[in-house]
Design a protein around this nucleic acid. Sequence first.
DNA 1: AGATAAAAAGACTTTTATATCTTTTTTTAT
DNA 2: ATAAAAAAAGATATAAAAGTCTTTTTATCT
Lengths: 141, 141
Amino acid sequence: MFSKSCKYAIRAVLYMAYKTSPDQRVGVKEIADTLDVPGPFLAKLLQQLTRNNLVSSVKGPNGGFFLSEKNRNEPLRKVVECIDGPEVFSACILGLPVCSSENPCPLHTQAFIYREGLLQMVGKKTVAEIAAQVTQEGLSV
Amino acid sequence: MFSKSCKYAIRAVLYMAYKTSPDQRVGVKEIADTLDVPGPFLAKLLQQLTRNNLVSSVKGPNGGFFLSEKNRNEPLRKVVECIDGPEVFSACILGLPVCSSENPCPLHTQAFIYREGLLQMVGKKTVAEIAAQVTQEGLSV
DNA sequence: AGATAAAAAGACTTTTATATCTTTTTTTAT
DNA sequence: ATAAAAAAAGATATAAAAGTCTTTTTATCT
């Protein structure tokens, strides 16, 4: 479903959502160590998210990454689409160039239902909301 | 969700399900041309499926690939798992090494619903049943 | 029996995704 | 002002997936 890049990005953003604020920033290394993902690779992803205003950063001593209030209120979907592109939720599960309700592939109906649920969730819930669930329910990232 | 290899394999098997029988065989080239997938690559996949008794073949003149009655009655799931491995339907959507109902990742519930729905379908329906749907309802492969 | 047509097998190439390393820029603290 | 610490940017490396090509085997037909 998601690329490794996307998985790392989602996890990093959720981690930042409950760990950071505009004056509580965190470095790549800490995130990478905590999530057990390759640091330099994660750095690239965070840069990309930063360029797209889904993550904030400040350079220099005591700098680091964090989520602004605006960042926290973005739907998680934006993070996913920033990394894996907007097609992740709509591309045909069999890779057919055209596949829709009108002209479906054999797995279209099931694939659609399944993905629609996911899409609803990440499209409606904000990063902050999902992160709150993580802390409240003790989920793993 | 599925690798390209897996997509090609599913499509090829469904195609064979309504195009072939033990004495109506089809060559790689025809399948590849029809489905618009790379021929030599598809050949490798068909070999793998053949080795795993999900597809049948005969060599030599007038030889080719086909589905035996036994092949037709396998659940499509077997094809998927033969190519992409048994983890496709259960691996954590965020790539966490442990993620289950007891210890879920933030997307676990939604991801579970999606994949479980798909799994039910490809696990219960046979290749022949899905192929029948393709011809009856004029679906695309 | 021999020729041929097809899959099987194996080696190889290309592309894409993942991962690392180095240099530059910017900010902060001294 | 300077030094240092951090992200940004760019270049490079490695691994995995996708795709191709060549040779071998085997079945079929004449």
